[in-house]
Design a protein around this nucleic acid. Structure first.
Lengths: 389, 389
DNA sequence: TTGTAAGCGTTATCAG
DNA sequence: CTGATAACGCTTACAA
């Protein structure tokens, strides 16, 4: 485990500096000198010492990607897209937080330690002010250290959390609430307009790609209502997470607009995760609670599959007896039985954009925040309720 | 972007060496000294400089994970399991090779440059001797540099490729062929017994977790034959990949045992990838080729979903008109329509084991090679052909 | 265009 | 148990 720059230099009959310059390629070197150096590199099978060069250059070619679980398609697709953008020159360090706030912080510190060039944090945030503050602090340190930070799939950090910018450039974006459409339904937590981290352009600001979870959920519930459903169950994701709440918010906005909000509470259950068992158990719980709903919304497609399985096991047909809808439009949702009505979020393109943003290959959106649209996809798992047939 | 060890040392009124010792914790330090140091670290929000310590210690805490595509559940599940094992102390660098040999090599070099502590290479290998040689060379360099290398989901490297061990310890394992059961069917390429990289115990040898693709495929085809199928189509994966070939091998072994090998060739098509479109197009192609098969086997579950979709679009019912089976038993395969008959490979536990092996937390299996079993899972997508009903 | 030399921030070896 | 002090291998002004 040897062969260093010096060895190559010796072999090529040049100085170490020259070899370094040839290898990094950002400095003029005579063609024939470069040739000799390159040959020496080949012959010696020289491979740069990453840590050493990172130390000297005060920068590494690592890009951190925080995900809940890389095996979950929601995160897998985004991570894959990020990876696709950063290509061969940078390396993606993916960290499974399992949705744990502590691990999120731990990994952020680990990435800072590695002097990561950028960090992409994917998926919803935990809505604990304390954690938000700690997170903001970590993120701020990261950006101060020169790392680019991109949030993909969660709302922007509040200024308080991330400790204000240099002042001047930190323009308050145009969005009124945490998420588009949030104002309409009046989720109390969404409170004050503004107060978000602005896009300090290409310099160290945090850039956010928020998902329109609220709007998507609203349209989904509107679809169900227009089909004739009045009692709509909801197997939500884990509580205290932005994704869970925003989707619920959208659902409730749609209900409220039709005066259906009254029993929303009784028709909602929270799962422990965005997984199939949560859907299965949630559906059973909903069925247990007296008058059954005519339709069930799930936290996402995976949960919806669990809901369908539970319903099937109870002898109920989907959508004849009860409609089911998911969220996210995972690749396999079209092949499920029945094909899932859902809300598509362009995870791949969002992840790719996050990757470009992380590399600085794309400019930050105005205000540092962009919203990724969510599109209603109607398939076979939703139909009018019995009464309407 | 400052605060170094020296700063902490100054603040705590000790030497840099002491701070280093407190932080790495592997050296006796007086309790109260440690306390002072720790407080200083807190106050200064000190974060170790990873590259610097990696340089000085000649070791990093990065573990490389090579996958075709992290968005593919086959790889996502394994990567997640690896990640789960390495936990917070090591960081997983996941590299999407897209199945490209060049990128595989490139990433291996990149990981060597980072002085990765270990590398886990997942999924099938490309069966090009030239590439195998290049790959062996890279892997050898890696192990020589002290990195642990684990192959998960592909057959062991040949000794030639990886350039023999120190001799003595490189015992030839007990397996006879590249994969268990391979000998029975007589795939010519599987040729000579032995010749594999032995398990040099805990020291730098390459450890392999091979999947029993051949055995699984054989059992799957036997299942179909026992159902009464005689014309079995096969939408295989990309050619020249071990996974593709081993599964095909198993299929053919089963056919040959019943004298059904004759039109196997005409009933086989190769897709471009292990994806849905390949399944869709492959099924169409199969239908186009004259006498339709009564059952179709797919390269994996994702491909099988594509096959089902194509069949459905052609007005054929699965399994009434034609049976379909997949491979891998992805989480959603049970929820597909119809629920997929498939072969389960315990991807999660295999990945977890690979992770432990990579960390040296688990001893290498005898011979350095272990085979992960594959289990036939019969569900609704396979049934007797018309003639047998 | 190329060489020289001073760091970069830790770890590890030796004394004390 | 603690403190100097060399490495570690590369980058980058600064010279030549």
């Amino acid at each position: 485990m040897a062969v260093t720059l010096a060895d190559v230099a010796a072999r090529a009959g040049v100085s170490a500096a020259t070899v370094s310059r040839v290898l990094s390629g950002n400095y003029p070197v005579a063609a024939h000198t470069r040739g000799r150096v390159l040959r020496a590199v080949e012959e010696l099978e020289y491979v740069v010492n990453g840590p050493a060069s990172a130390l000297a250059a005060a920068s590494s070619d690592l890009v951190g990607v925080l995900v809940n679980d890389i095996a979950d398609p929601f995160f897998g697709i985004m991570a894959s897209a990020v990876q696709g953008e950063i290509g061969d020159r940078k390396l993606a360090v993916v960290c499974n937080t399992g949705g744990s706030p502590e691990r999120e912080l731990t990994y952020l510190t680990l990435l800072q330690r590695q002097r990561a060039a950028a960090v992409v944090v994917t998926g919803g945030a935990v809505e604990d002010p304390e954690h938000q503050a700690a997170l903001g602090a970590r993120l701020k340190r990261l950006t101060e250290g020169g790392a680019r930070v991109v949030l993909c799939g969660r709302p922007p950090m509040r200024d308080e959390a991330v400790g204000g910018g240099t002042g001047a450039a930190g323009a308050t974006g145009t969005a009124a609430g945490t998420e588009p459409g949030a104002a309409a339904g009046g989720a109390p937590e969404d409170a004050p307009g503004g107060g978000q981290v602005g896009g300090r352009g290409a310099d160290g600001g945090i850039v956010t790609l928020a998902f329109d979870n609220t709007g998507g959920a609203r349209r989904l519930t509107e679809h169900l209502i227009s089909l004739g459903h009045r009692r709509i169950g909801y197997v939500a994701g884990p509580a205290h997470r932005t994704t869970t709440r925003h989707r619920l918010d959208g659902h409730r906005q749609a209900l409220e607009a039709r005066g259906l909000l009254a029993d929303a509470e009784a028709l909602t259950v929270h799962g422990w995760a965005y997984d199939r068992p949560s859907g299965y158990d949630g559906a059973l719980e909903l069925l247990r609670r007296g008058t059954a709903p005519t339709a069930v919304l799930a936290a996402n497609d995976t949960v919806a599959l669990g809901v369908c399985a539970a319903l099937r096991d109870q002898g109920l047909r989907v959508p004849e007896d009860i409609s089911v809808a998911g969220f996210d439009d995972f690749p396999y949702s079209v092949d499920a039985y029945p094909a899932l009505t859902t809300v598509r979020i362009p995870l791949h393109s969002a992840g790719a954009r996050a990757g470009r943003l992380a590399l600085g290959r794309e400019g930050a959106p105005p205000g540092g925040v962009a919203t990724v649209p969510a599109e209603l996809i109607v398939r076979a798992s939703t139909a009018p309720p019995h009464a309407f047939r």
